[in-house]
Design a protein around this nucleic acid. Structure first.
Length: 283
DNA sequence: GTCCAGGCCCTCA
DNA sequence: TGAGGGCATGGA
């Protein structure tokens, strides 16, 4: 299949920040602002030769998928206009102002629903380096290998049909999560859970359907809604976000300001909280 | 050795 | 309805 390179003019877009932000676990850093990005049974190479220029090299028939994946079809100028307006009102010392100034290239990726769902079931009570290692091992065992032009390789994310038996998931570091992943894979493979359909159903109904799956609670359901189902209003609260809310917003987080995209603001705070005051180790 | 990590489930009050 | 303990794993 022919591969093409498209060029997009971007604003508020930073591949490094997105890669480190804990919303995806599979990007492979090849250099400054250059990543191999596996998803949907294939991969692309994304790089930024200029601060306002994103280039995506991918299969010709997947250009639309990747444009959507990187949020290029979403109204980020509107989101940032709102964020900047509130920063102006809050003043330069406000936590949200500083977080937005720091993580000013953040985007919520539109990842394939199954890949995000399985990834965040694995994420529970786990840390990001281990989550990455587990998912990589899973892809190497059950995915397909794709050879890159450079001579390197990437593995695709395995289909749910391959993960339905917990007994086959040993040795990956999953721990007690193996049975959650197998139950999820069985439900998706068997058709009792239709993740794609949940992307378009009522928000609360979709969340309740996700929480009915073993191993998916409030936080993981919110992650799936945000990162896998394109619901940018979802607001996952993990230990990092909880600390921020308790310390900075004891009277409540003003989510109403960011109606429809509070999940983006959540991601900005998550990034700032983890990286501010320490060198940004590029993983 | 203890603590922690993008938590969830079960039990008990 | 809410609090508390258990759960696999591995790095700090």
């Amino acid at each position: 299949m022919e591969r093409v390179t498209i060029t997009e003019r971007v604003d508020h877009f930073n591949l490094g920040q997105i890669a480190r932000s804990g919303q995806t676990f599979r990007w492979i850093r090849q250099g400054p602002q250059t990543y191999t990005v596996p998803a949907a049974g294939d991969y692309c190479t994304a790089f930024m030769p200029e601060r306002d220029q994103l280039k995506i090299r991918c299969r010709a028939d997947m250009v639309n998928f990747w444009r959507r994946y990187f949020g290029l079809c979403d109204p980020y100028p509107e989101y940032w206009a709102t964020i900047d307006a509130w920063a102006e009102k809050d003043g330069p010392e406000a936590y949200l102002t500083k977080a937005a100034a720091y993580a000013d290239g953040m985007v919520i990726l539109r990842q394939p629903a199954w890949e995000a769902t399985a990834s965040f079931v694995i994420s529970q009570n786990n840390n990001i380096p281990r989550i990455k290692a587990i998912i990589e091992a899973l892809c190497r065992r059950f995915g397909h290998m794709i050879t890159l032009p450079s001579g390197g390789w990437v593995y695709t994310f395995p289909e749910p049909e391959k993960l339905t038996d917990a007994a086959h998931l040993g040795g990956l570091g999953l721990g007690y999560r193996d049975k959650y992943l197998a139950a999820l894979a069985s439900a998706v493979a068997g058709g009792s859970v239709d993740l794609e359909k949940l992307a378009t159903t009522d928000y609360e109904a979709a969340k309740e359907a996700l929480k009915a799956i073993p191993g998916i609670g409030e936080k993981v359901a919110n992650c799936i809604l945000l990162y896998g189902l394109g619901r940018l209003e979802a607001f996952p609260v993990d230990v990092w976000i909880r600390r921020i809310l308790e310390r900075e917003f004891p009277d409540g987080f003003p989510a109403g300001r960011y109606a429809g995209f509070a999940g983006l603001v959540q991601q900005i705070m998550f990034c700032y909280e983890r990286e501010s005051g320490r060198p940004t180790a590029c993983i």
